[in-house]
Simulated scan of single mutants.
Amino acid sequence: MTKSVDIVAGIKIPDSAMAKAATELVQDTETDLLFHHSRRVFLFGALAGERKNLSYDPELLYIGAMFHDMGIMDRYASDTERFEVDGANAARDFLSSYDVAEREVDDVWDSIALHTTPGIPQHKRPIVALVTAGVEMDVLGIGYDEFPEAQRKEVCECHPRGLKFKHGILTSFCLGTIRKPETTFGNVKADVLSKMDPSYERRDFAEMILNSPWDS
Rank of each mutant, 00 (worst) to 15 (best):
S111G: 04
D110Q: 15
Y56C: 12
K164M: 07
A77R: 15
G186D: 13
R39W: 00
D74F: 00
G45V: 08
G64C: 10
A90I: 09
L210D: 09
E24N: 04
N211L: 13
S194I: 02
E207W: 07
F185N: 08
D99S: 15
A129F: 01
L25C: 05
V41I: 06
A21I: 00
M208H: 04
A77K: 15
F205M: 15
V85E: 11
I112S: 06
R92F: 11
S172R: 04
A88R: 07
W109Q: 04
L170D: 01
G87R: 09
L60K: 03
T177K: 03
K166M: 10
D28V: 03
L130E: 05
P213D: 14
K52P: 01
E84A: 09
I127Y: 07
E24I: 00
M1F: 10
T2W: 00
E84S: 11
F67Q: 12
E149Y: 07
F35R: 01
D32Q: 06
P14H: 09
S194W: 00
E149K: 14
A77N: 08
K153S: 13
D28C: 00
V85I: 15
P126M: 11
G49Y: 06
T171A: 04
P198W: 10
M70R: 02
D107K: 07
A65W: 02
S96Y: 02
P14F: 11
A46R: 08
H115L: 03
L47V: 06
M208R: 13
K153F: 07
G176R: 06
G64N: 10
E182F: 14
Y76Q: 11
F173T: 02
T117D: 13
S78Y: 09
E102C: 00
A91K: 05
Y62S: 09
E104Q: 15
I178E: 15
L130G: 11
L193K: 08
F205A: 15
I63C: 09
F83N: 11
F94H: 05
F67V: 04
D106V: 09
L95N: 07
M137P: 01
